[in-house]
Simulated assay, not measured.
Amino acid sequence: MSIKKKLGLGVASAALGLSLVAGGTFAYFSDTEITENTFAAGTLDLSVDPSTIINVNNLKPGDWMNRTFKLKNDGTLDISKVILTTDYDNEELAKHIRVNFLRNLDKSGVVTPNDIVYSTTLDQLKGTAPDAVQKKIWSPFGENSGLKAGTKDDFKVQFEFVDNGKDQNHLQNASLKLTWTFEAKQTAGESR
């Protein structure tokens, strides 16, 4: 090998060695932190107790039936409203069954025992969507509208087979299957 080649190889080796030494001795401070984050969605869980509010036979015009039931929020999120939808299978009889919502005991505060909050026949109730947990009576007492997580509202309702003072013989032996669907809606989103 010629001296030129040896010298060139030596210079190249020295340059490589210097670059390794410079790169290997470069130092800096560092610190690392790790965060573990969680997103967990809440639940809406509405229940009705009892699941069958009314089941009666042998009705005649003028009869009325008082019932109580509870809407319970068994979920972890507050409910802003509970939409009530009504369905049934006998249009003619539905015109003669009046529903008197006597009270939502938790929202009404201090009212007289037979204070009817809302009254309508089943055929008029169908197609509407009233909010069952809305505070309808102004009162400084009682809860605000909605249903907080872990709470319940107590309801009194009266069903009445309206005696219209006319011949209602065509309703003998008639029956009606009533389906009430309670749909819970969440509260609005908020900064968390």
Rank of each mutant, 00 (worst) to 15 (best):
K60Y: 07
K60W: 00
K60P: 00
P61Q: 09
P61R: 03
P61C: 09
P61K: 06
G62C: 07
G62S: 05
G62Q: 04
G62F: 10
G62M: 00
G62N: 03
D63T: 10
W64N: 04
W64E: 06
W64T: 10
W64Y: 14
W64V: 00
M65Q: 08
M65R: 01
N66R: 08
N66H: 03
N66S: 05
R67M: 07
R67W: 11
R67E: 15
R67V: 14
T68I: 01
T68P: 00
T68K: 04
T68C: 00
F69S: 02
F69N: 02
F69K: 01
F69V: 03
F69D: 01
F69E: 01
K70G: 02
L71N: 02
L71R: 02
L71P: 01
L71H: 01
K72G: 03
D74G: 02
D74C: 00
D74S: 05
D74M: 02
G75W: 06
G75Q: 08
G75H: 10
G75M: 06
T76E: 05
L77E: 10
L77V: 13
L77P: 09
L77H: 05
L77R: 11
L77M: 13
D78A: 13
D78I: 10
D78T: 12
D78F: 08
D78G: 07
I79M: 01
I79K: 00
I79Y: 08
S80L: 10
S80V: 00
S80H: 09
S80I: 11
K81R: 11
K81W: 06
K81D: 05
K81I: 02
K81M: 09
V82A: 03
V82L: 09
V82F: 05
I83K: 04
I83Q: 07
I83W: 03
I83H: 02
L84W: 14
L84K: 06
L84R: 13
L84F: 12
T85H: 08
T86I: 13
T86F: 06
T86V: 15
T86P: 04
T86Y: 10
D87W: 05
D87A: 13
D87N: 11
Y88P: 02
Y88F: 15
Y88H: 08
Y88G: 03
D89A: 00
D89F: 02
D89P: 10
D89H: 05
D89Y: 04
D89R: 04
N90C: 11
N90K: 12
N90A: 14
N90H: 08
E92S: 13
E92I: 14
E92Q: 14
E92P: 00
E92A: 13
E92R: 11
L93D: 10
L93A: 07
L93Y: 06
L93R: 09
A94I: 12
A94C: 09
A94R: 06
A94K: 12
K95I: 05
K95P: 08
H96S: 14
H96R: 15
H96F: 13
H96L: 11
H96E: 07
H96T: 07
I97N: 14
I97Q: 07
I97P: 14
I97D: 11
I97W: 11
I97M: 07
R98C: 09
R98Q: 15
R98K: 05
R98L: 15
V99S: 00
V99A: 05
N100E: 12
N100L: 15
N100Y: 13
N100T: 07
N100Q: 09
N100F: 08
N100S: 14
F101H: 06
F101T: 12
L102E: 09
L102I: 15
L102N: 03
L102F: 03
L102V: 15
R103A: 15
R103F: 14
